[in-house]
Simulated assay, not measured.
Amino acid sequence: MRLTIMAHGPDMVAPRPPREGGRRAHSPPHHFPPRSSYAALDLGTNNCRLLIARPSEDGFVVVDAFSRIVRLGEGLAATGRLSDAAMDRAVSALSVCADKLRRRRVSLVRSVATEACRRAANGREFVQRVYRETGIALEIISPEQEARLAVLGCHALIEPGEGQALVFDIGGGSTELILIDADQSPPRVIDWYSAPWGVVSLSETEPHVGDSRDGLLDSYARMRSRVAESFAQFAAKLEPGAQPGRLLGTSGTVTTLASVHLDLPNYDRRLIDGLVVPVTAMRDISARLAGMNVDERAEVPCIGHERADLVVAGCAILDAILDMWPAERLGVADRGIREGILRSLMARDRTRMLM
């Protein structure tokens, strides 16, 4: 069975109850076929993630989910191509997703691929292989589409206030910066930028190495400098002298650092999604992790061996963002592209049924 049904086209602030995502998220609740189900699949440079949901009266209910680190972009910075091992890992994860989509009898699915497939010379060949072997039709989306879907999926967690807000998504191969007018619903995108640095691409291009804490911190400073240079064009367009406003991050980096901030023994999405953390606390954690070697970081709960070699790159990107947009508080979202896809699919289906 081919899965080709596609959409056209005292140091912290307590978390607020999530208004979308988690087990529920806001989305138009009425005028859907009985028990209709929708799915969003996001294949990134580092992770493969799937959400399957059904509409409910107050949004949608997630009925199944899947997430696996596949490191599709491993080695891409050096070769310009997706490696055989990386593609095999991704296909294995996508096969699990395909089985879930069949068993859940999903009515409508949108499957997207991002920076690794955009950048790789063999990205489209890989997409064809995925279709042949799993039946999943991946759509390679543009950086702008990626940015807008991320905002659509997480904007409800932006803190109340006035003025502009900055939403960012630190991925595996790129980082999206989205400047929005949050006084509108949904928010209006004022400007956006996609930087070519994510946790995988930065780690491979500017490795975090050193024989001592000072050496590691010097290496970290070079990582920050490289990212800041790539942000310069976007930063220059920000209003001169304007006081940076609200800030919301959606990525494994910010959710991991928020978990370290709370000193959680294991990751708990219920405590993280919607959390607001003082920026000084996030900077302190980044500095502490940057002075550790990879084995020391692996011993930190909620980092472990899977994230130990990549988390410092995420810290460097986050620090560069905070240098550019020096907010006092950082909102943390464990939601983004997949939730944005689900919202758009449900809204489109509802409109179609009302016609």
Rank of each mutant, 00 (worst) to 15 (best):
V311S: 08
R288G: 08
L76I: 02
P160N: 05
P196C: 05
L50Y: 00
V70C: 09
P326I: 10
M223H: 06
A165V: 02
T79E: 14
W325S: 10
E299M: 15
Y131D: 13
L330I: 10
C154G: 10
G59Q: 02
R288D: 12
S107K: 12
R297C: 14
A242C: 12
M355Y: 11
V62N: 06
L166V: 07
L149Q: 00
C315S: 12
A65Q: 14
D263M: 11
I158Y: 02
C315R: 05
G73S: 03
V199I: 14
Y131I: 10
H305P: 15
R24H: 14
V311G: 11
R49A: 06
E206T: 14
L72R: 01
R188V: 11
Y131K: 13
D58C: 05
M12P: 12
L262M: 13
R270N: 15
R188F: 03
W325H: 10
G75K: 02
I272P: 05
V61H: 15
V332S: 01
A313H: 07
N47P: 02
R343T: 12
C154R: 01
R226Y: 09
I141R: 06
L94E: 03
C97D: 03
P326E: 14
I140K: 08
E176Y: 02
D319V: 10
L76P: 04
P207T: 03
D295L: 09
A14D: 15
S142D: 15
V61F: 09
V294D: 15
G171D: 00
W197K: 07
G336M: 00
G198I: 05
N46Q: 03
A333C: 04
E306W: 05
T256P: 04
P18V: 09
C302R: 11
F126K: 10
R89K: 04
S203Q: 05
L354W: 09
S185Q: 10
S185F: 05
P18A: 08
A347N: 06
G172W: 00
N266V: 13
